[in-house]
Amino acid sequence: MTDLTKYNYVLQHADNCLILGQRLGEWCGHGPILEQDIAMTNISLDLIGQARMWYQYAAEIQNEGKSEDDIAYLRDAWGYRNVLLVEQPNGDFAQTIFRQFLYDTYSCYFYEALMNSSDERLAAIAAKSHKEALYHIKWSGDWVIRLGDGTEESHNRMVAAVQELWSYAGELIKPNETEAKAHEEGYGVDLSAIKEKRDAKIREVLTEATLEVPESTYAHEGGKDGRHSEHLGYILADLQFLQRAYPGLEW
């Protein structure tokens, strides 16, 4: 390993993409209507595509002859560095939408900033992913507004989703040691610089959706350093079963 900080930095983002992609993929065949089923699985595939770019780079930095698949499939839960938000259950459609919206409002501005990374590889991953993130935020933002400003039923469900997930919004833009160091070294994003834009976007969309922006700033954290909720173990059981039961299997 030449650069442990960069490896961990890359891994954090790889794991965010993979776990959220896996969660969204659970909707496959269960979407509220065919068109939204396809929309969610499209976004899931975008995220898994982004995860692959990140894992490939992680494997190169690690330089131990391991592949992207080894890193994705053969770590246990405490080795995962995704934020707690992305491992939260799908819940109802409103909860899935709001989880996605919180992630998209972060990832959009994160990738926008990462395009200026001093590391060309990171800048290239950011440029490709940013275009996808712009579509994702359009999709999730529109749905927050539709449901929030929709029927009494959909409004109440959005209110419940905001309450359920709000405390997971803070971890995304609160730098851990790895992120602070990555920023110092010039290749990582300064999260405090994107916080304002992100908060403004959340406020704008929630207001249009006739939803209140919660005042609480309490944030669950720990995911970025490998301390996860119980949900991650179950996700990994699904995700990793095949490679664990049939090591090296390809199809």
Binding site: L34, E35, Q36, I38, A39, D142, R146
Partner: peptide, 10 residues
């Protein structure tokens, strides 16, 4: 608007 988005995805 949703029709355009759905068409894009489908």
């Amino acid at each position: 608007e949703m029709a355009i988005q759905n068409a894009r995805d489908v």
